[in-house]
Amino acid sequence: MGLKIDNLTGGYAGNQVLKDVSFQVDDGQIVALIGLNGAGKSTTINHIIGELLPKSGQLTLNGVDLGQAPAAFKAQLAYIPEQPILYDELTLEEHLELMLSAHQLDKAAAWDDVMRLLATFRLDDKLHWLPTHFSKGMRQKVMLVAALMLHAPLLVVDEPFLGLDTLAQRDVIQLMKAHAASGHSVLMTTHLLSSAAEFVDTFVVLANGQVTFVGSPKALAQAHHLSLSNLDDYFDLAPGVVAHDHD
């Protein structure tokens, strides 16, 4: 079933950013939300994770309505924000234990998988470190591990490659692919269309708070007479994508 967004209208107090946004992320799919700065990508994400309340419209995840059962909705998603946010007081291990416990997952059963993820991001020897000792990239990796270890039905990733080294970027792509291959869904935002086109199933283009295109990368490229490798030129060519600054 996946994530379904129907006629979402919303934004911040006194600033309506999104107008009738509708799209869906099916099980096993990787969907990328794209648009220039201020198009409404982050606002859409903030609505999905329950940070903003919609003015109208509906968000459901596997049949659970966010407005009616926020805790049950959140229990099904894992989120990786653009800026890594950690508790300064908690070690890496405590962060992961906390997240497992909040999602009612047994540590003993999940820990092998957690250690595998930590090893992938070269964090397995830093379990007792506090966030003050982490670089920005390492913090982002902690966020990735904390989200991926949950195997949540929906993985929401805001700008997944920001601050990551090339090895980690490659690993993130592999892990997102694996997540989708296991029947879960991934929703991400990105500006890097050409790179994303290699592994994304669907692009949802946002401009001025409205959805202007939903389709495969190939369809987007064909519609604007571009090849997949120069899809980044899309924003130069597409009419109406230049947005206001409210993202």
Partner: peptide, 11 residues
Amino acid sequence: RKLWTRLMPVT
């Protein structure tokens, strides 16, 4: 106020 807390499925 921490995003981590807000994302946790705890009532």
